[in-house]
Design a protein around this nucleic acid. Structure first.
Lengths: 374, 374
DNA sequence: AGTTTTTATGAATCTTCAC
DNA sequence: GGTGAAGATTCATAAAAAC
């Protein structure tokens, strides 16, 4: 195990470069395509394989509109067995073409990432981190049946327990306001001008944000490194690699995606720093839910809270709701209802007693923030 | 497949209760211990299995002080094979003792969670969410060799793709200030007064925060449910279960942990009934037929109702059906047909005038419910 | 032209009960 | 088990439309 942090050209780059299809998207099945590459020839593999979503019927939003689901043929697998075989096949080829000090990245969701993670461990890869991409704007759970699925997972692995790998620790720390970069990354989904569209409809159903690739490549590759993406899609990996001065190779069997990717990457200019803006933006001011205070014991369920004039006394319940007799609601909603007001700031409306003092519940929030701030 | 949200006592609770070792920590290996429990007898399994950390050698902070790593004998496994066999064994028993509408929770890190996730899928469990516990105060990466490992992962799974399960959606939404609870949970690690210590050193190396269990149990169990924890440790699950009015059973083979857990849980006080009440979904509200409102004079036959933009105006008929010209139907069916939508909630679609105000007909239902409850 | 309101949409394993 | 009806259910963003 070890970390290399260097800007020097890596050995064996020049001799491989002449035979590698740099800046090209290989046609056809990715396992077949990768077979054309020599052993130990790439520095990094970034893979965004099909997630095997196993969706049922149609889904409609509360307003009745339809959700545009990922029903493409390339995401259809008959069983976990079939998906596992597919996964083992492409991971085996990826492992063959990686240099001994190369690294693998895979992104996935709970549908597939546990299969992928177990198989890559079985093949000898050594997980260095699992990274959580926390989406600022995920799709909600429209039916209220589960927690909002608000993240995806990336696995970062070296070639083995004792293998060397590259990690640009300083760059990551700088990018994160001089704090160590953590394993949870907060980034928006790909939308707006960045999202490739053709006649108003998205070209690819699962295009990844460039800021995600930017951080991956900046963290774990050097300038001039060769990055291989076996599921190239519309070429986010290639576009960001070019921007950052890395070489790239893609595999993609759909003509439409290949064409879109070539056109997109041709427009890309090396060393454009625009994506940095998104990444360096400070974390949003921490919001605290009243429920968090209850969970963490700052206000115990059963505590009585009241407005300043003690016109109403409410009881704190286990889920952070309040109750006055049969009327219940959130700190804001119940305050609003009781007063018949259009709105109410529950943080300043409700008070509680601490050691004989009466304080707004906002005081508990301040204590909580002090105790938990990074 | 489905979601149940109810405060009612679950069927089959009473008969099982008499034979189950509620409030007890079973001694010995958890697989052996679980064999003593009958099939389909518990509502929830929460498991915090050994992490298979495979730390090579000792770890030191930059100042030379040693990190108290998890190197206890119970955490050593020769290989993934041994760990997988162990995992399959306890998950199989957990599956046997769970009710058909029960649920499984497992917490882990990247060292073990991919093994666990793949195996539980192989056994037929159906993943509902993977939850990221984002730590506000993780241990830094002292050597600067990787990203700060700032999270752990929890898997929440039902007994199968079509199995029912329980999710207190409304309580979670309330706990999160009226926004859907997401799959990423921000909580501090267990420290301070909550951390069990004996002579200045921590009793258990991986004690989980009570806030984590609080959210798990509040979200996916009901009052009176039986929660089994096969790796009980110092009893965080039992302490929170008791506080929340849930029954608990533990398995733990280390005497020291069992003793600490019993002492800890004895000090725990259950919350009283009223504090345990949580916000309820409308799914639980007693059903009211629109016709009942008409019968009882809340909306008289002949009243005009209309959608918000007054694109359609319908007349209420004596049997609770609506008519727009020759088109007739129920409040839902007619709203659906007029819009050409896949479905329509007539309660919120149709409005009526009361004292000059425009209100959804759902307001009349609320009045009716208030007047008739109890 | 500038501001406010409305609409569209994103890797989604997304209902339940009676007949 | 299949079908149909009742009825519960959404957050952040960006672009378009309205004012």
């Amino acid at each position: 195990m070890g970390v290399l942090e260097t800007t020097k050209t890596r050995a064996a780059r020049v001799e491989n470069a002449v035979e590698l299809p740099l800046g090209r998207i290989l046609d056809g099945d990715c396992v077949e395509a990768m077979r054309k590459l020599p052993d130990g020839s790439v520095d990094c593999v970034f893979a965004d394989p099909p997630y095997n979503l196993q969706l049922g019927g149609d889904l409609n939003r509360p307003d009745g509109s339809a959700v545009d689901a990922v029903t493409d043929h390339w995401d259809q697998f008959d069983s976990f067995k079939v998906y596992d075989d597919f996964t083992r096949a492409w991971l085996t080829e990826a492992r063959r073409v990686l240099k001994p000090d190369g690294a693998l990245w895979v992104i996935g969701s709970y549908h597939n990432i546990y299969r992928v993670g177990a198989i890559l461990q079985d093949l000898g890869f050594w997980i260095l981190n699992d990274i959580v991409w926390r989406k600022t704007n995920p799709m909600p759970n429209f039916k209220g049946t589960r927690f909002t699925n608000a993240h995806e997972t990336l696995l970062w692995a070296s070639m083995g327990e004792k293998a060397k790998y590259h990690f640009n620790y300083r760059a990551m720390k700088t990018l994160n306001d001089e704090l160590q970069m953590r394993s949870d990354w907060v980034l928006p989904i790909c939308s707006g001008g960045e999202r490739l569209k053709e006649g108003g409809t998205k070209v690819h159903p699962t295009q990844k944000p460039e800021a995600l690739l930017y951080r991956v490549l900046l963290a774990t590759t050097e300038k001039g490194d060769v990055v291989l993406d076996p599921f190239f899609g519309t070429g986010t990996t290639g576009a960001v690699a070019k921007r950052l001065g890395r070489e790239w190779i893609g595999c993609e069997r759909e003509n439409v995606y290949r064409d879109a990717a070539y056109a997109r990457i041709a427009k890309e200019l090396p060393l454009d720093e625009s994506a940095l803006e998104t990444m360096q933006s400070k974390k949003n001011a921490p919001k605290v839910a009243f429920g968090a205070l209850v969970e963490n014991g700052y206000l115990k369920p059963g505590t009585e809270v009241f407005d300043k004039k003690r016109r109403w006394v409410a009881t704190v319940r286990a889920d952070g709701s309040l109750a006055v007799g049969k009327q219940t609601g959130s700190i804001h909603g119940l305050g609003k209802d009781l007063q018949g007001a259009p709105s109410c700031n529950g943080w300043t409306f409700w008070h509680y007693e601490v050691d004989g003092d009466v304080k707004p519940i906002d005081a508990a929030r301040q204590l909580y923030l002090l105790a938990t701030e990074d």
